[in-house]
Design a protein around this nucleic acid. Structure first.
Lengths: 128, 128
DNA sequence: TTGACACTACGAAATGCTTCGTATTAGGAT
DNA sequence: ATCCTAATACGAAGCATTTCGTAGTGTCAA
């Protein structure tokens, strides 16, 4: 009865979570002000989404003040791991290696990225 | 006017694509017979999904025979890259490194996996 | 105390996904 | 030709996501 279901944040939910991870605990207004310059969205839309996210358990809400304060319930890392595992199962037949290959094949992998990953590999092998 | 929108296959669509990639071109019946033992689903449900996927351009359909024959329009690799890039943008701020970290942290990457990735890094740096 | 303002709650529409039942059509066997 | 089977086409229901308008409520200043 801990986590009844695998919770996969939707696109909108992830956009909000990204703000909460970046800013820390925030009000609806703060989240809205962060989001709307990039992607215009109504204030009540954000409010509604965050209410739903509360019901789903994606965020926790502090109602002690007039303007409720929201915080992400799970860390960014944990959520990322969740999403990666999900994608792994749905599209990579569970092969983490293949996923890594495709991640690096994208143009977004810089030389610095490669060096960092190389170091990660070293650490993983060292801790065997 | 090539690809008007980013096409992200849904869960059901991905399940069907996985069958098509594994089997190659297939009829609805073949796809259904492959899917339903694992996850029971109605025949017409699969048919409908594949019709929609045809409209979306996720699959192509050969209607020359009585039982239409479907094939994935994009390769598994290309679709995987698409999905990884999408996830990268939505949840990793574009950092391929972080995605790799989470991918390797989640499932236990075997020594063989690590070696394979290491070789991939070598190839990528060599082709600079 | 009353008005303005900021905030939450609620309802509902629009769209997309998933599901399947029913209708129709095409082939093949009798 | 007729009937059975297998296939496609269509429509619609149920649910989730996204969107926002409107209503209600609490706070503070004048």
């Amino acid at each position: 009865m801990a986590e009844k279901k695998l919770l996969r944040p939707t696109d909108s939910e992830l956009a909000i979570l990204n703000v909460l991870w970046k800013r820390g605990s925030s009000t609806v207004r703060e989240v809205h002000q962060d989001l709307t310059p990039v992607t215009p969205i109504g204030y009540t839309t954000v409010l509604k989404l965050m209410q739903i996210m509360t019901e789903k358990g994606l965020v926790v809400r502090d109602e002690s003040e007039r303007a409720h304060v929201y915080a992400a319930r799970f860390t960014e890392q944990k959520t990322q791991r969740q999403l990666v595992n999900d994608l792994l199962d749905r599209a990579f037949g569970g092969s983490a290696t293949q996923l890594v290959v495709q991640a690096l094949a994208s143009k977004k992998a810089s030389a610095a990225d490669l060096a960092e990953i190389r170091q990660l590999l070293d650490e993983m092998e060292a801790s065997k």
